[in-house]
Simulated assay, not measured.
Amino acid sequence: MKTWHVTGPGIESLRLAEVDVPIPGWGEVLVRVDAVSLNYRDQLLIANDGYARFGLPFTPCSDMAGSIEAVGQGVSRFAVGDRVINNFNGGWIDGNPPRRDGEIASFGGPLPGTLTEYMALPAEWLVKAPSSWSDAQASTLPCTGLTAWMSLIEIGRLMPGQTVVVQGTGGFSLFALELARRVGAEVIVTTTSATKAERAYALGATHVVDRNDGSKWAEQVKAITKGRGADHILEVAGGRNLESSVAALAPGGHISLVGVIESFDSTFPSVPAIHSFATIQAIYVGHRAGLERLVRAVDTCGLSPTIDSEFDFAEFPHALARLQQGPFGKVVVRR
Rank of each mutant, 00 (worst) to 15 (best):
H287P: 14
L44C: 00
S256N: 04
T191Q: 03
V189C: 08
I11F: 12
I280W: 08
S13G: 00
A273H: 08
F311M: 10
L249F: 08
V208K: 09
A180C: 05
V236E: 03
A148R: 04
F268K: 10
P110Q: 08
T225V: 02
A105D: 14
S266C: 11
S245F: 05
E186R: 15
R322N: 08
L179P: 08
V260N: 09
A65H: 01
L234N: 09
Q167I: 09
T59F: 02
L121W: 00
A105H: 13
V164M: 08
A282G: 15
E310M: 15
R77E: 15
Y51T: 00
T147P: 07
W26S: 13
E198P: 01
S173R: 02
L203T: 01
G55H: 00
C301E: 13
A52R: 12
R99S: 10
G55K: 00
A120T: 03
E124A: 15
A282E: 03
T7E: 15
S13Y: 00
K226R: 13
E292G: 07
D49F: 11
G252S: 02
L203V: 04
P22S: 10
L203W: 02
K222G: 01
V333N: 05
Q167M: 10
A200S: 10
R334M: 13
V332Q: 06
R334D: 03
S309L: 03
H254M: 14
T190I: 12
K2N: 12
T144P: 01
R182M: 12
G171D: 01
T190G: 05
G290K: 11
H254W: 13
